[in-house]
């Protein structure tokens, strides 16, 4: 890479980072605004229904900084964010970073498994369907994918629990054990939620990849390759696949982002203490700092994944340069 190229790449990355920061600031603001709209007084809730003495409540409010004007609260929230301080849970008094630190690896593990399942199913299935377009294989794969995207995760999860946990008692119906404590049990517990999420992810990805592959197979360069004597395997794996994978990477990135952001319902159903569940339970409890922090981290990961996908994209596609 020449010096000029390096400078251009650096400038490009700089601009992207700036955009990233802007989006994160908007996210932080949105989080703040939405949570302040939630009716109900957190001070009242944490101190219990029976405490009615306004003096006690005011004291607690002052302690939590909730008595200050909204603008001050907002600026304080931004200032703390900038230093990586997400505050302290109102309820448990533990630092939010610590709570997130516990939940994050759990979500990461689940997301990773689910994403791998999605990838491992979608690539071969998408390839097979597009190569046999209009044939039985294609019909089977496309209809399975359609079922995949039409099944809500909670329905699939409950049906899976009904058969595998309740009826046949093959797998646990929920819970979580850290892999460092008991790896085998951890995996057993992960199977149902990961497969549930993975199948749904696969549904979206298969449809996307199949469509891309079919579009690419109709391109002029395919005709040229055939005209110079390339066989169908070379045409497919040597020409079409890479072109179709370029947009696939974007969609797969979005799916990965969604999985990383914590499968809220799936985690609830399977009682998995990940980020999704952390957010939901604390919305019920109106534990602002925890929800704020968790949502912010999740959104941040999503934006970051998208950023990485963009980089991957420009690496895969020679037409897109980093400038």
């Amino acid at each position: 890479m020449t010096r000029a190229n390096l400078v251009r790449t650096a400038r490009f990355l700089g601009r992207r980072m700036l955009g990233l920061l802007l989006v994160m600031w908007l996210v932080a603001t949105l989080v703040f605004v939405i949570l302040r709209l939630i009716p109900g007084d957190p001070v009242q809730i944490i101190s219990g229904i029976d405490v009615v003495d306004p003096a006690v409540l005011d004291e607690l409010r002052a302690e939590l900084g909730l008595d200050e004007p909204l603008l001050v609260q907002y600026l304080r929230w931004l200032a703390k964010l900038a230093t990586g301080d997400l505050g302290v849970s109102i309820r448990s008094q533990t630092p939010v970073t610590e709570l997130i630190g516990k939940a994050l690896p759990v979500t990461l593990e689940l997301a990773l498994f689910a994403f791998l399942i999605g990838l491992l199913i979608s690539v071969p299935a998408g390839a097979a369907a597009s190569r046999r377009k209009g044939k039985l294989t294609d019909a089977l794969i496309t209809s399975s994918a359609l079922v995949g995207i039409s099944l809500p995760s909670y329905v699939l999860a409950l049906v899976a629990i009904y058969w595998f946990a309740v009826k046949w008692q093959l797998l646990p119906s929920g819970g979580y054990v850290s892999p460092t404590v008991d790896l085998l049990e951890n995996l057993r517990m992960m199977i149902l939620p990961a497969v549930t999420l993975g199948l749904i992810t696969a549904g979206t990805l298969v449809r996307m990849l199949r469509r891309n592959l079919i579009d690419q197979l109709g391109e002029d360069y395919v005709r040229s390759a055939r005209a110079r004597g390339a066989g169908e395997n070379l045409v497919f794996y040597g020409h079409v696949m890479r072109n179709a994978l370029i947009p696939y990477v974007t969609i797969a990135g979005i799916e990965a982002g969604i999985l990383l952001s914590g499968a809220v319902i799936t985690e609830s159903i399977f009682a998995i203490p990940g980020l999704g569940r952390l957010m939901v339970t604390n919305i019920y409890d109106r534990d602002y700092p925890v929800v704020q922090g968790a949502v912010f981290v999740v959104a941040g990961m999503y934006v970051l994944v998208n950023f990485l996908v963009d980089l991957l994209y420009s690496w895969l596609d020679p037409r897109v340069s980093l400038s």
Binding site: E219, D220, Y221, R223, H239, N243, I246, L316, D317, P318
Partner: peptide, 8 residues
């Protein structure tokens, strides 16, 4: 313009 594979 379209007869060559753009990624190779």
């Amino acid at each position: 313009m379209t007869s060559l594979n753009p990624v190779y």
